[in-house]
Amino acid sequence: MPERVRVSRRMPPGHVRAPAYLRGKTGVVERALGRFANPEQLAYGLPAGKEPLYRVRFTMAEVWGAAAERPDDTIDAEIFAHWLTPVTERQDAP
């Protein structure tokens, strides 16, 4: 997994653990946590494959834009790999 990642903007219904306030936001992988059973399957009593889970660090500026209380404060969250895509510098432009 590359260092910079973006959380998908997908908004499916159902039990997902990628919080809405981080969707579409770009962060940096703080650490890889290993593979964990996919909660989107477990929640419905379905067989669940183990998916890579990452701790991703976001700046307040990235998450809240101009409304950020302090731009360089951060939020770390655990996000499953299927919600993340690698980001290159070029794609970073708005």
Partner: peptide, 26 residues
């Protein structure tokens, strides 16, 4: 920082706040 003030904790400006959102298994 506003929430922490409600708990009576005022942080110096040169301290970075790191929030940890427990969204999965940790």
């Amino acid at each position: 920082r506003k929430v922490l003030r409600e708990f009576g904790l005022e942080l110096p400006d040169d301290v970075t706040v790191r929030i940890h959102d427990s969204t999965a298994d940790m």
